[in-house]
């Protein structure tokens, strides 16, 4: 896979150059969306840690979910003459003029976690994001492998209807199981990405599928819904993790607890470390003039019960999830 290779290359070169003398003098501003979810809080925590590792002077502006605050923050970073700006855009459009201002000031901009409208492609250096279709595909491929040719009815807990992440994770999973006729989705409903709805929807799936006897696996678009679904299965007398396979996405700490207890099987990580690769790309660009690729895809790592879930839980639990 080409992208993966690129990613690795940039990570390696980043590691090499991050010890460069110039990095220490570097100031980078980060316009963060806010802290609307645990993952977002973890991203902030990890970004700070990654900056410290590289001796970068890192400034974070919390936009409280408002684009106007982000635009203000970027203008203020430009005025301060920072070396680079990271932006986690709250929406896809409306960035043209402020990004042009940054461009005119010769300050490179790196997008984190989310992309902007394709029309603005020339206005930023690179975008570090995860590929949510790929995440779904990793989950699907794991399930095909684990089912090992046996028939397997899957129930799917979708994210919020219309959210692009939900659409992509659904599509990716379907791609992942496309080759295996033994694995098929029998029910699919939205759980709005929340524990409470995940639990409620799972309860109804269990009843609709003969008390859960017909369910071989649960796929949830995020771990929170899966945590709710696991509760629903336990209350219905099912044994998630053994009788019913589970696979979900995000890799938040609580799912590792469930995996350690044997109640969950697998999760695909949406890494909170978007800033690390971004720092490396900027350092390479500043030091060497290395032009990063337009898109740096983060790794969608698969964790299973074999990956010492308790240790992962310990490492993640204080990140702010």
């Amino acid at each position: 896979m080409n992208l993966r290779a690129l990613l690795l290359a940039s990570a390696v070169s980043g590691a090499l150059f991050s010890v460069g003398a110039q990095a220490a003098d570097m100031t980078i501003g980060f316009s963060q969306i806010g802290s609307e979810s645990g993952w977002r809080a973890a991203e902030t925590t990890v970004s700070k840690a990654e900056a410290k590792k590289r001796n970068i002077n890192f400034k974070i502006a919390d936009a409280q979910q408002k684009q106007e605050n982000q635009i203000k923050a970027i203008r203020s970073f430009v005025a301060q003459g920072v070396d680079a700006i990271f932006l986690a855009p709250v929406v896809a459009t409306g960035w043209d003029s402020v990004l042009k201002e940054a461009q005119e000031a010769k300050i490179p901009v790196v997008l984190l976690d989310r992309d902007i409208d394709p029309a603005g492609k020339d206005l930023y250096l690179t975008a570090v994001t995860s590929d949510s279709v790929h995440e779904g595909k990793v989950a699907g491929e794991w399930l095909v492998k684990t089912a090992a040719g046996k028939p397997c009815n899957v129930v799917e807990l979708q994210g919020t209807v219309g959210a692009s992440v939900a659409t992509n994770r659904k599509k990716g999973f379907e791609d992942g199981i496309a080759g295996a006729s033994n694995v098929k989705i029998v029910r699919s409903q939205t759980g709005d990405f929340t524990r409470a709805k995940g639990k409620e929807v799972m309860e109804s799936f269990i009843k609709a599928e003969g008390g859960g006897k017909n369910i071989c696996a649960v796929y949830a678009h995020n771990d929170d819904m899966m945590v709710g679904a696991i509760q629903a299965m336990k209350e219905a007398g099912l044994k998630p993790g053994t009788e019913v396979l589970t696979v979900s996405i995000d890799a938040v700490p609580d799912i590792f607890k469930a995996m350690a207890a044997g109640e969950a099987n697998a999760t695909v990580e949406l890494t909170p470390n978007m800033a690390g690769p971004a720092f490396d790309a900027i350092i390479a660009f500043k030091d060497k003039g290395t032009m990063p690729p337009k898109w740096i895809q983060t790794e969608s790592k698969l964790y299973t019960q074999a990956d010492n879930p308790m240790a992962v839980y310990e490492s993640k639990k204080d990140l702010g999830y």
Binding site: S37, A196, K197, K199, G228, Q231
Partner: peptide, 14 residues
């Protein structure tokens, strides 16, 4: 009741 149900408090969604 809602918190007790999911064994946690989800301030964003509760």
């Amino acid at each position: 009741v809602a918190s007790a149900d999911i064994l946690g408090a989800d301030a964003n969604n509760a």
